[in-house]
Design a protein around this nucleic acid. Structure first.
Length: 546
RNA sequence: CGCGGCGUGGAGCAGCCCGGUUAGCUCGCCAGGCUCAUAACCUGGAGGUCAUAGGUUCAAAUCCUAUCGCCGCAACCA
């Protein structure tokens, strides 16, 4: 799935579609924990929607048409394009390692993107939403934007971000009539309460527009070599934000593959960081309307990951380097030392996606060990071992039994409502709550159940009834594993698959849905252990760490 | 009065939007059990006036107001 060509195998079908994107990244440094967090949260949603039968298109990419990128290339004595291509390769390597199942990866320096981009801006121009003017102001080369006079004054002539002197710059330029869309935007927020998620971000934007209003925005830059030329005035390049947002449509065929574009647009969810909400919820819909297109359906602004309570500053980084912990900033390194599944689990379980989260090595080990090896992994091991050692892995007489009855007896009578709740949390991207419930309300009770019924004792009494009872006990516990593996599929896909494939469940893994976790069907055959065994045991699914 | 977030047993958190069982979870601590399982698992226990002060209510960790404290936006992050 990952890495396939943008348009090669997308076909029009009758299936309901789901199109989602993540923010495209500046490739002036390697991806870090925070960018990985965003991709993970988006990936869970994509995997969940695929399970639910949607025809999913998941778009990601790199935002390369910025002077930061060309500057960095110069520092490294590389051609800008070669540098951008190599960074794209490195980003994809990380995303692949984290099992991010993107369908389209867009580089904004690609010819296809540039062409589509020019078509779009020409359309906006033709529709009368771009006009020529001139702009004079205090410019920061680091931010690639003009700062307001107020900011210039407050910071003694320095950029508040970079602490470098602001330069007075005056230039002819092209403006986009953003101000013309204030009322329409406010009306849109009102009419579509879920457009901006979570609600807190919506309130911020609404209040921002009501108090400060929206001003026309300069969308051109003069004197740049690297970037996309404005079609109606090649002296200028397109401002990076105006260009970058367009990946969301150029990546699905805007301008040259109408069928694919129509199939996927409007976007179901843009996943972004909370700091760029304004661009996605005000500028972006306005741009689309100006070109005669629809606004996206939903923008989801996730929180940030902090490091042991604080932000990841330069000094914090140095501090960690001294302790030999610098690998913690490198997603690839964390994956190499532990596993992609451990990485995914920690961030999804511990950091609330809609709000800020925290990362600490100690907590990482604690969360992982207590919930994966000790709880879920252990449940698998003990079920398999008891079945294998005492029944040669085949639980005769369990075929045809309805697991629902069995599970009701186990205390899972309200499985449908639990699964319903869990689906709701997944759809709201409250992944930490989802995982909390799966562990606490599915896995933990199963471990308890085994202790209470102690099948390993029943098999030793020499009594035929006890032997039969032991089989039923294991059967029930294994059904819980089935439920857990299905619910965990979007989160830790490989481990969930290993659990599921450890037994002969009838539905193929590729076809399981969340509904299957709530409405089980009787197995046609006796339950059998299909996991690979060494000395009658399974290899630990999650090795303990620390 | 710039905007926003947070304050829950020793540590870290969930619950708060849609008030209502003995305030839940992980780690740590104490005692016991089990020995199928990855030195894993299970049971019981100690430990909390849910930041503070008011208010609404039959009922507030949960809603409202105020106060205090910490943090983010805001030193090359999203």
């Amino acid at each position: 799935m990952a890495g396939r060509l943008p348009f090669g195998d997308l076909t029009v079908s009758d299936r309901k579609t789901w199109f989602q994107t993540t923010a495209i990244d500046y490739p002036n440094s390697r991806p870090h924990i925070g960018t990985a967090f965003e991709k993970l949260g988006a990936d869970v949603q994509a995997r969940y929607r695929r399970m639910e039968g949607f025809d999913v298109c998941f778009l990601m990419g790199n935002d390369e048409n910025t002077t930061k990128v060309s500057k960095r290339a110069v520092e490294l004595s590389q051609e800008t394009q070669a540098y951008a291509d190599d960074m794209a390769r490195q980003f994809r390597e990380v995303w692949d390692a984290l099992e991010i199942t993107y369908d389209v990866f867009i580089q904004t320096s690609s010819e296809r993107h540039k062409q589509c981009c020019r078509k779009f801006i020409q359309k906006v121009f033709d529709n009368g939403f771009i006009y020529k003017g001139s702009y004079a102001g205090w410019y920061c080369e680091g931010c690639e934007e003009f700062k307001s006079d107020k900011q210039h004054e407050e910071n003694n002539g320095l950029c508040p971000n970079h602490r470098t002197p602001l330069v007075r710059r005056s230039e002819p330029c092209y403006f986009f009539k953003l101000s013309a869309f204030s009322d329409r935007l406010l009306a849109h927020y009102e009419a579509n309460p879920d457009f901006i998620q979570p609600e807190i971000r919506k309130n911020e934007i609404v209040s921002l527009i009501k108090t400060e209003g929206l001003r026309d925005i300069n969308i051109s830059r003069a004197g740049e070599e690297w970037g996309i030329r404005i079609p109606f005035d090649p002296e200028f390049t397109i401002y990076v934000w105006f260009d970058a947002l367009l990946t969301y449509i150029t990546g699905i065929g805007y301008g040259d593959d109408e069928a694919t574009f129509k199939k996927n647009w409007p976007c179901d969810t843009h996943f972004i960081g909370k700091d760029i909400t304004r661009f996605h919820t005000a500028l972006w819909p306005a741009m689309l309307w100006a070109a005669g297109e629809e606004a996206p359906k939903r923008v989801f602004a996730h929180g940030f990951v902090y490091f042991e309570g604080g932000k990841i500053s330069k000094s914090r980084a140095d501090e960690l380097k001294k302790k030999g912990l610098e690998y913690l900033f490198e997603p690839m390194e964390i994956v190499r030392r532990f596993s992609a599944e451990a990485f995914r689990y920690y961030f999804l379980r511990e950091c609330p996606f809609p709000a800020d989260g925290d990362f600490s090595p100690d907590r990482f080990i604690e969360v992982y060990n207590s919930e994966l090896p000790n709880n879920l992994g252990n449940l698998l091991s003990r079920c398999v071992t008891v079945a294998a050692k005492n029944f040669q892995g085949v639980l005769e007489g369990t075929g045809g039994r309805n697991p629902i009855d069995e599970l009701a007896a186990l205390g899972f009578g309200d499985l449908p409502s639990l699964v319903g709740d869990i689906r709701a949390t997944v759809e709201r991207c409250q992944y930490n709550l989802t995982l909390q419930r799966i562990i606490q309300e599915v896995c933990t009770p199963a471990n308890r159940f085994l202790d209470q019924t102690a099948p390993w004792k029943l098999v030793k009494t020499g009594n035929a009834d006890d032997l039969a009872l032991a089989k039923q006990v294991i059967y029930r516990a294994v059904q819980v594993l089935r439920v857990a593996s299905i619910l965990l599929k979007p989160f830790i896909p490989k481990s969930a698959e290993t659990i599921y494939r450890s037994f002969n469940f009838p539905t193929p893994w590729a076809e399981v849905k969340y509904a299957d976790a709530a409405e089980l069907q009787a197995q046609p055959d006796d339950l059998r252990v299909t996991a690979e065994l060494v000395d009658g045991k399974v290899k630990p699914l999650f090795p303990r760490i620390g």
